[in-house]
Simulated scan of single mutants.
Amino acid sequence: MARPSLREKIIESGVRTLHERGFAGAGVREITGDAGVPQGCFTNHFRSKKAFAVTILDRYHELTQAIMDETLRDESRPAAERLHAYFDAITEWLEMAGWRYGCLVGNMSLEVPEHSELLRTHLIEICGALTSSFAEAIRAGQKAGEIRSDLDADDMAAFILASWEGAMMRMKVDRSPRPIEQFRRVLFATVVSP
Results as ranks from 00 to 15, higher is better:
residue 2 A to H: 11
residue 4 P to C: 06
residue 7 R to G: 01
residue 8 E to T: 15
residue 8 E to Q: 15
residue 9 K to Q: 15
residue 10 I to L: 15
residue 11 I to R: 12
residue 14 G to T: 13
residue 15 V to L: 10
residue 15 V to R: 05
residue 15 V to M: 08
residue 19 H to P: 05
residue 20 E to C: 02
residue 21 R to Q: 05
residue 25 G to Y: 04
residue 26 A to H: 10
residue 26 A to S: 13
residue 26 A to R: 00
residue 28 V to N: 05
residue 28 V to I: 15
residue 28 V to Q: 07
residue 30 E to N: 05
residue 31 I to E: 03
residue 33 G to N: 04
residue 34 D to T: 13
residue 36 G to D: 04
residue 36 G to P: 00
residue 36 G to H: 08
residue 38 P to A: 12
residue 40 G to H: 12
residue 40 G to C: 07
residue 41 C to T: 02
residue 41 C to F: 03
residue 42 F to M: 03
residue 43 T to P: 08
residue 43 T to S: 11
residue 48 S to Q: 03
residue 51 A to M: 04
residue 55 T to N: 05
residue 57 L to V: 00
residue 58 D to H: 08
residue 58 D to S: 07
residue 58 D to P: 00
residue 59 R to Q: 14
residue 60 Y to R: 13
residue 61 H to S: 14
residue 62 E to I: 00
residue 62 E to C: 09
residue 63 L to W: 10
residue 68 M to K: 09
residue 68 M to R: 10
residue 71 T to M: 10
residue 73 R to T: 04
residue 74 D to H: 09
residue 76 S to Y: 08
residue 77 R to I: 00
residue 79 A to D: 01
residue 81 E to Y: 05
residue 84 H to S: 09
residue 89 A to R: 14
residue 90 I to D: 06
residue 92 E to K: 10
residue 93 W to F: 11
residue 98 G to P: 06
residue 100 R to D: 08
residue 100 R to C: 10
residue 102 G to L: 12
residue 104 L to T: 03
residue 107 N to T: 12
residue 109 S to F: 01
residue 112 V to Y: 09
residue 114 E to F: 12
residue 117 E to I: 11
residue 117 E to H: 11
residue 119 L to A: 04
residue 120 R to W: 01
residue 120 R to N: 12
residue 121 T to K: 13
residue 122 H to L: 09
residue 123 L to Y: 09
residue 124 I to R: 14
residue 124 I to K: 13
residue 127 C to D: 03
residue 128 G to Y: 08
residue 130 L to F: 09
residue 130 L to R: 14
residue 131 T to Q: 11
residue 131 T to D: 02
residue 131 T to L: 05
residue 132 S to T: 10
residue 133 S to Y: 01
residue 134 F to I: 02
residue 135 A to C: 08
residue 136 E to S: 13
residue 139 R to Y: 02
residue 141 G to S: 10
residue 142 Q to Y: 11
residue 142 Q to M: 10
residue 142 Q to I: 11
residue 142 Q to F: 11
residue 145 G to K: 07
residue 148 R to N: 09
residue 149 S to G: 15
residue 152 D to P: 07
residue 153 A to S: 14
residue 154 D to N: 08
residue 155 D to I: 15
residue 156 M to L: 14
residue 157 A to Q: 02
residue 157 A to I: 07
residue 161 L to H: 13
residue 165 E to F: 14
residue 165 E to C: 01
residue 168 M to Y: 01
residue 169 M to F: 15
residue 172 K to M: 14
residue 173 V to H: 13
residue 179 P to N: 07
residue 180 I to S: 01
residue 180 I to A: 02
residue 184 R to E: 11
residue 185 R to M: 06
residue 185 R to N: 09
residue 189 A to Y: 02
residue 189 A to N: 13
residue 190 T to G: 15
residue 190 T to L: 12
residue 191 V to I: 15
residue 192 V to M: 10
residue 193 S to P: 06
